[in-house]
Simulated scan of single mutants.
Amino acid sequence: MEKAKLDRISELSRIARERELTEQEHLERQQLRSEYRESVVGSLIAQLESITIVEPDGTKVEVKDRMKKSSRGGN
């Protein structure tokens, strides 16, 4: 997420502590927070998918492969 958007979230939070946000400011803050959450979740998923698990028997399983199996109802 762009620094300008993060700064705007912080600015709106400061304003909210001082006074009631206008409807437009409130909607803007909701939208920015939603974008931020999506960015964090996307980054976390990408990081998790890059992990390789080494099983006790020495076999290597990538987390993304394991996630695909669990979404299909496998183990």
Results as ranks from 00 to 15, higher is better:
31 Q>D: 13
70 S>D: 10
74 G>Q: 15
28 E>V: 01
36 Y>W: 13
64 K>P: 10
69 K>W: 12
41 V>N: 02
12 L>S: 00
42 G>Q: 14
24 Q>G: 01
56 P>W: 09
49 E>K: 14
37 R>M: 12
32 L>M: 03
20 E>N: 04
23 E>R: 07
5 K>A: 11
36 Y>L: 15
28 E>C: 02
34 S>G: 07
67 M>W: 10
69 K>A: 11
42 G>I: 02
31 Q>R: 14
21 L>E: 03
55 E>C: 10
49 E>V: 02
64 K>D: 11
60 K>G: 01
23 E>F: 10
26 H>L: 13
1 M>A: 09
59 T>H: 09
57 D>L: 00
42 G>R: 12
31 Q>T: 15
51 I>G: 01
56 P>Y: 00
62 E>F: 07
34 S>E: 14
50 S>Y: 03
7 D>R: 06
34 S>D: 12
70 S>A: 12
67 M>F: 15
66 R>M: 13
11 E>C: 02
19 R>T: 04
63 V>A: 09
74 G>Y: 03
43 S>T: 07
58 G>D: 05
72 R>C: 05
28 E>Q: 02
39 S>K: 08
8 R>T: 02
39 S>M: 10
68 K>M: 06
8 R>V: 00
6 L>N: 09
75 N>C: 08
43 S>W: 08
31 Q>K: 14
42 G>H: 07
34 S>I: 06
17 R>E: 15
55 E>A: 08
73 G>Y: 00
48 L>K: 05
11 E>H: 10
31 Q>H: 13
72 R>D: 07
68 K>L: 08
